[in-house]
Design a protein around this nucleic acid. Structure first.
Length: 257
DNA sequence: ATGGTCGGGGACCGA
């Protein structure tokens, strides 16, 4: 079972990229973030014609999440308890017995800003939900754009980024708290090349200079993680014309479907 | 060599 995640930075602009990528990668599940698409405008027919079903939670201009899957998604959630949030950043679904939680974590702008406080509160409420929901679903994947660099290995310049947004102690602790519920960062289960990033700033030719961050993660529950055979970042679509600033990430699990 | 959205200029958000 191949499970992927991609922040597409507007599905309208990136639809052809998504279709091209689905065609060659053939994931069973693809979680999208930053679709920036109202539900009534979601390209359901085009996705269906590509062989995928889809569920989504969108809004105008900002945020928006979706889950594409070859098999049917059930038990859809778009919100978690105690988080009354108009921002569409959360989408949970069960597919082939695997609970999938797609997250577009709050950016946070700057440490100690109002948005930073919202980021930490948002993470706390989502973590509370995962803790409860995981008890009912052994095979569980939390994936998406986390907007957190877990360790200095996930940052091109840890000195410059020290204690800044994405790298603050409170953000890293929040991510560790999710991992401590029994999740594994599948990417780090395998030996990886150094300087491997999932996001590169559009500015300054940063992709060609390989200056970036690893902020797009696929976390798997213990029962799934022990069957993870591969977890990679596919940088290729970042080199395509008019790309998303994020690359897709992919994890493969050897499990009964 | 800053992109996307909304809207029709430029502000806002992003990471």
């Amino acid at each position: 079972m191949k499970i992927a995640s991609w922040n597409v930075n507007s599905l309208k602009v990136r639809l052809e990229h998504v279709l091209e990528w689905l065609d060659y990668e053939q994931p069973d599940i693809l979680a999208l973030q930053e679709t920036k698409t109202l539900d009534e405008n979601f390209p359901v027919d085009t996705i269906n014609e590509a062989g995928y079903q889809v569920v989504f939670s969108g809004q105008k201009t900002y945020n928006g999440v979706a889950i594409l899957s070859k098999e049917k998604a059930t038990d859809i959630i778009t919100d978690v308890p105690k988080l009354d949030d108009p921002q569409r950043r959360i989408l949970g679904a069960t597919i082939n017995g695997v609970r999938v939680l797609c997250l577009y974590v709050v950016n946070g702008q700057e440490v100690d800003s109002d948005k930073y406080a919202y980021k930490l509160e948002w993470l706390e409420k989502v973590t509370d939900y995962i803790k409860v929901d995981h008890k009912q679903h052994q095979n569980y994947v939390v994936l998406g754009d986390f907007n957190i660099c877990h360790t200095d290995a996930d940052v091109h310049d840890p000195v410059a980024w020290k204690d800044r947004i994405f790298c603050s102690a409170a953000e890293r602790t929040a991510l560790q708290t999710i991992l401590d519920l029994g999740f594994s960062d599948t990417y780090r289960q395998f030996e990886q090349a150094s300087d491997s990033w999932s996001w590169w700033d559009y500015r300054g030719g940063n992709y060609n200079r390989n200056i970036g961050l690893r902020i797009d993660l696929i976390l798997a529950s213990k029962s799934l993680a022990e069957h993870c055979q591969r977890s990679i970042i596919d940088p290729e679509p970042r080199s395509w014309e008019r790309p998303s600033d994020h690359a897709p990430v992919v994890a493969t699990f050897e499990i009964e479907q």
